[in-house]
Structure formats: structure tokens, C-alpha cells
Design a protein around this nucleic acid. Sequence first.
DNA 1: GTAAAAACATGAAATTTATCATATTTTTGT
DNA 2: ACAAAAATATGATAAATTTCATGTTTTTAC
Lengths: 235, 235
Amino acid sequence: MKKKIETPHCETCGSRHKSVFCGIASSEVKEIDAIKGCNFFDRGQVIFHEGNRINGIYCINSGKVKIFQIGSEGKEQIIRFAKEGDIIGYRALLSEEPLSASAATLEEATLCFIPKSQVLKVIQENPAFNLKMLKMLSHELGEAARVITDLAQKPVRERLAESLLLLKDTFELDEEKNIQVKLSREELANIIGTATESVIRLLSEFKKDKLIDINGRTIKLVNIQGLVRVANIFD
Amino acid sequence: MKKKIETPHCETCGSRHKSVFCGIASSEVKEIDAIKGCNFFDRGQVIFHEGNRINGIYCINSGKVKIFQIGSEGKEQIIRFAKEGDIIGYRALLSEEPLSASAATLEEATLCFIPKSQVLKVIQENPAFNLKMLKMLSHELGEAARVITDLAQKPVRERLAESLLLLKDTFELDEEKNIQVKLSREELANIIGTATESVIRLLSEFKKDKLIDINGRTIKLVNIQGLVRVANIFD
DNA sequence: GTAAAAACATGAAATTTATCATATTTTTGT
DNA sequence: ACAAAAATATGATAAATTTCATGTTTTTAC
């Protein structure tokens, strides 16, 4: 199902300007463009598998992606999301460890693959890009710490409200305040570490409380301030 | 209580050879040595405070440190530990964000402070050090992901067994198999996100099951394979 | 050295959350 | 379009974990 498509060019890639590559030199863009590969993925396809080695990074040209681990009981745990302009796979590449997580698409997606040699070349030759990578990794480490504290301390209800707000920040709302990503109840459960049934029940409550509106997998954030209060966020 | 002591010299610092600094040039060591500051901390002293800005990194010359956040109900969540040779504070420095966590000593400690300018200088001028930083951040991100999955999916009993094994890996065992760090029951609870009483009860069970032995805050790992089994680790 | 404070310990009750059972609805594959 | 599969929904029950109460031991401060 993974099929080659017309390779989009980095020079004209709209995603680039939102990405960690936005500041690199034109010559460097050309080099990446020449060496990269590009693939189309259907909804739900796995991009890479936890435990494997990776020899480059993926840059998301279009589409949305979940990064997840499988726990000891075989249950999926979603670690983070990525979208157009984001890169994935760099953690394992830079640490020279096997992939700590898998990645799969949440919808049709186009991803470019940039080989390790080229990534390291840009890191070594472009100090600004280098610092940007350090900054990105550091930022994510801070986000991971906050997730750890929330998982350890907040009850399921608060975690669900908070993750809806997080999804809003990551994927943004459309003009009708719908979160611009469609996740199953099970996937929502796999973000916050709870049972699918708990998510279903709590979403119904949130709806009854006029915090959200539900239409299949589309969630409309009706009362964001209310959700912030339920999420117990004060910062 | 924070008092200046005789500044240890980087050239002769035994910690350096275990640290991210182990490969840097002699001239760079001398430069750091000339510009760094050094402070002694008593047990339990806070080194830096979540939310503040930091203008350098601390390098642990001796002693053990916990890095923690305060959750929305005021409860401490321990994110990670650091010891002799480790650096702390680099996440906030590199991301140019406020500190995402606080740090406090678990015992008397000596820490050197290296100002931001000097850290960035070494990063920019020493590609090997640079890559080592990228590698360290990436590695930690992988560890954070594993913690997230465990907190989200494992029951308290498994998490406690696992964190004892993690403490073993971090601080090592003495010749009697005692974990080389002393933590209160509350601090153990703050690693795994549970109530202090639960830790107390489970430690007693582990002792009854001949997995560990307890002497005040000293925990002896009697049956490591058994703990691995209880922790439900298969990798 | 002693009083006060903090940490540790244990039982009972309450709460949260998961699991199981069972419908109903929606999606998917042919 | 239709059957099968998957996802959603809801109630009842069970299990895990927290909270509260209370007592004991250990540590700390003067």
C-alpha cells in the first residue's frame, strides 16, 4: 500500500516554513531535495516500528501522525502527535538507539525520508539548525515532564479535559471550534492511560455539562474556559 | 547555608570522566575551570526552582540530586535523578524556556555552575560535545517515553518494583546489594505517582516475599530476578 | 537529653477506575 | 446493498487505590 508519488520539492514545500528546516540555506535545501525519498501512506499505516533501527528521519509533508509505544500488556500508549512540517524519527537517529516508539498515520499522509548522512551533515555544517535541534529536543523533554506529572497525579477526568485542550493546541480548531483531528475513543484512552469505556462515559458527561459537543469522532470545544477548569490547569 | 568551598578543579575532577565533558580538549577544560563557580549544598537544599530562568548549567561534582515538578495539588513529582558527573539545568538553558522542574539535593553535594555563554561556546566550537548533547537529550526523551507508558499502564505494584530496579541502575548497589541512595517512602511514592501509604504497604509485601530487605531508608535488593518479574519487564 | 516534629506503619472505609456483559450504531469489505 | 466486523454506548460488578484515623517509631531542634 505504500506507493511512490510525485515527489514534492523542498524548495516549494509549504510545510518547510513551519518546520525546523525553515532557516536553512537554499543550497542545503537543494541537497536535501536531491537525496530525499517521498512516500504516500494510507490512513492507519505504520511508518516505523518500535525496536527497529532507523537510518534517517521522516519529514511530514502532509497528514497527521501518532507516535506510540506498546506497553507490557500489549496496549498502545500514545506519546505524542506530529503534523505537517514536523519531523519524526530523530530521537532514535540522534541517540543511536533502536526506535523507542512506533509511528502511524491518523489520515492519508505524505512523508519525505531524509537519510541520516544528510541530517548529520546539516547538523554539522549549520550551527543555527543545530541549535534548533537542541532547542526542539529540550522543549519536548519539558513537555514529557509535564505529561509525567499529570499521568502520575491527575484523575482521569482532569487528564481527559487537558488532553482535549492539548489536541486543540496541536491541531487547532476549525471555524466551528471542532478539533481538527479525528481520534477513536480508544485512541483518546491511549493518550491518557485509561479504559475506552471511561473515555466514552466522560465525553458524555462533558457534553451534558456543555463543555463539548460530539459528532462521531468530531469533538467541538464549546466551553474552553470550562475545560481549563475541569483540567485543573492554573498556569 | 549555601557556602563557598574550595573550588575543585576541572582538570583533576574525577567526575569529569563519567560526564558529557569527558571528551573535550584540555584548553576547553581550562577555560571552563577559569569561569565556573562552585557551591556546597546541604542535604535537602533546593538548587533551582521550577518557573525561574537559569543562566547556565550545574555540573555535579559530588552528591545526589532529584529533579521534580510540583503538580496542581501541590504534590511533588520526581522526574529523574542525577549524580556525580551529571549535568542539570541544560533543558531550560537550551530550550530558552523557564525551568520546567526544580532540583534539590538528596545528600550533601558540591555543584559547579557553568555560565550559559561558556556552555554555548563549547557547543559551537566542539562538534563532538555538540553531538553528545544531542545524544543525551535524545536518550532522555526515550526514557521519558518509557516512564509515560509505565505510569499510564502499569499498576502501582509493578511501578514500584520497576522503580527500585531503576534506582539500582542509576545509583548502583553496594557490596551488600543495598541501593546506594536513601529516599523517604514519600519520595518513592513521588516517583511512581501513588500515595505514601501504598508504598509502605507494598515495600512490606516485597520484604515478606523475600524480594527486598528494608533497614530504615536502606533497601537491599535480595531477589533481582523476582523484582524483574513483579515489574513485568520483558525487554 | 528531651520534647516536638516528622516519618513510618496499619486497619477500615470510601472512592476511583477497570472489567465484564450486553446492546446499539457505524464502518468496512465484497 | 448487505453481512460482518469494529466502534460506541451503558449498566452492573469487581478490583485497585486513596483517604482517613490512629498509633508507633525515628529524627530533629534546642
